[in-house]
Amino acid sequence: MRSRIESLLENYAHTKRDSLIPILQQIQDDLGYLSEEAVVLVGKHLDMPTSQIYGLATFYNQFRFEPKGKYHVQVCHGTACHVLGAQPILALLEKMLKIKDGQTSRDGQFSLQVMSCIGACAQAPAISINGKFYGKLTQERLKDIIDELKQH
């Protein structure tokens, strides 16, 4: 892990604080989340206090501090999705997966994240699982999708 982060940081030699966000983004793309070790190493690299890196990372929606589940479920909660039933979809997901927004299930199978708007209002309500989209979702279809994933 450490060596992976370090080699990644080599691409950002002689950079300053303004590359903090790109660095964290790349680490998260690579590791799936920001580990404490990563935050410390980035701090050393940019000569920045870790408190400020952590403060920054907790400000933005993108960054997470625990690994994603095997299935990362993202629920769109834009305006169109809201009026077309995103709330019951989310409630059902929380019930089925027994986790809330931002959490990962204990067995590491599922993680859940609410998105502000994915911009596919014509397909509302929509979710994505590991990048694959499911539009015009109904409770029944969602149940089937999740049940199917749980089999694996």
């Binding site: 994915i118 911009g119 596919a120 209002c121 014509a122 397909q123 929509a126 994505s128 989209f133 539009g135």
Partner: peptide, 8 residues
């Protein structure tokens, strides 16, 4: 597009 992507 990101919109049609969701439509498949």
């Amino acid at each position: 597009t990101s919109s049609s992507e969701v439509a498949g």
